[in-house]
Design a protein around this nucleic acid. Sequence first.
RNA 1: UCCUCCUUAGCUCAGUUGGUUAGAGCACCUGACUGUUAAUCAGGGGGUCCUAGGUUCAAGUCCUAGAGGGGGAGCCA
Length: 465
Amino acid sequence: MSIKNRTKIKEALNSTELNRTITVKGWVRTRRGNKKIAFIALNDGSTINNIQVVADVPSFPDELLRHITTGASVSVTGKLAPSVGSGQNVEIHAENIELYGSADPASYPLQKKGHSLEFLREIAHLRPRTNTFGAIFRIRHTMSYAIHKYFNDKGFFYLHTPIITGSDAEGAGEMFRVTTLDMMNPPRTEDGKINYREDFFGKETNLTVSGQLEGELGALALSDIYTFGPTFRAENSNTPRHLAEFWMIEPEMAFYDINDNMDLAEDFLKFLTEFALGHCYDDLLFLNNMYDKELLDRLKSVTSTDFKRITYTEAIDILSSSGVKFEFPNSWGSDLQSEHERYLVERHFKKPVIITGYPKDIKAFYMKQNDDGKTVRAMDVLFPRIGEIVGGSQREDELLKLETRIKELGLPEKDLKWYLDTRRFGSVPHSGFGLGFERMMLFITGMSNIRDVMPFPRTPKNAEF
RNA sequence: UCCUCCUUAGCUCAGUUGGUUAGAGCACCUGACUGUUAAUCAGGGGGUCCUAGGUUCAAGUCCUAGAGGGGGAGCCA
């Protein structure tokens, strides 16, 4: 019989078909008991809940039970039965126990009692075995699936944009260099610079900071596309909201204006929140009880409220007439600070806010210019606790305006020829946005540090595991 | 990168105006208990006080530098 044949603990706990013999496999969370009887809480990651294994101690060799300690991996065969004790509905009366791997209790880092999230970050290789991170990673999977389901059901196509890129046109941040050159002794040009013609791709290449520009190429052929892939920023950002390697979702839609764009972003965020509530309730309940007592209420409120939509100019007016003393005073033309965003979302409107019509000078070159000559059709979706969770815009589809803007900003027009071709040939109004997956995960799980929603986070000075 | 706080047992932390042999809870080990739920009770072992200098008769405690971590800010998703 194949060793994979066993009942997942999630299925066993939900089973109504009792008094049958099953086999479960997993990792021991705790063991209690005395010389006559032992209670083993077993978890296999299929659910946050453990199954209780009851063992009649004299029936098993001392040598075996001695190794049934927190962290050990075992296979248990026995009768699934209604629990004699209270606290669980069913339990397994062990007939056979096989030890796969022991875990020395003196050196195994995970204990029965709570650990700090900071400590668990240092043992990221073992933290998936905790209740907290089991819950988070199950939710992370479910959200990934929900993203694909949402777009697939809407007729969007999943487009794979490049991870290695030769374009630095978006200027979204510092980039990681990709090279095969010998760093100790790189080839040089006659004037002493590094000669990238001899590099693997024959030019300077980097890890992508955004798939948007390539995403637009797809949208202007397939109508509606999305990307969902790893993204890299070499910024020296040390905050609970930034990673050097993160995952981003970037839908791009032909024949969408800024209002269609906002409608999609709001519907998408609500769908993901509802999907989490509907499919991860046990895990969310655990996080709600252990970390954030308002989590479930906050998630439910987002699904049932309309996001407030205001312009940048209106936002500035609200802030100036609020009477609140901000550390950084605001005036028309300067970007909103974190404290301003938090005021609008958490105190003034008390719901998600979408801000549009930003001054063109604080936004990217590709955003659609309004007729006032001052603002662009950008949109930022601001969430409670998180701040900016989505950034997007209607794109500039007029060739002349786009070329002029590129010249004003001194961007390398030559490197953007392929991008400008989409405006030269069959240009259409189109829009898109980017959602930081881990920022969405912060919102869904109620965690406060982005390093706790990524299995193996990469941050400045940290690439462990 | 800037500001700020922190670093003492496996984990979470206490440690007074600088003063004998650095403590607690949990974890771990041993023992007790026929059904426990973060089991309980009794006993036991366990320390490079982050690192390197310095001040002092004396430093976990004061000073300087460095490393690591938390929070806030900037950049952004």
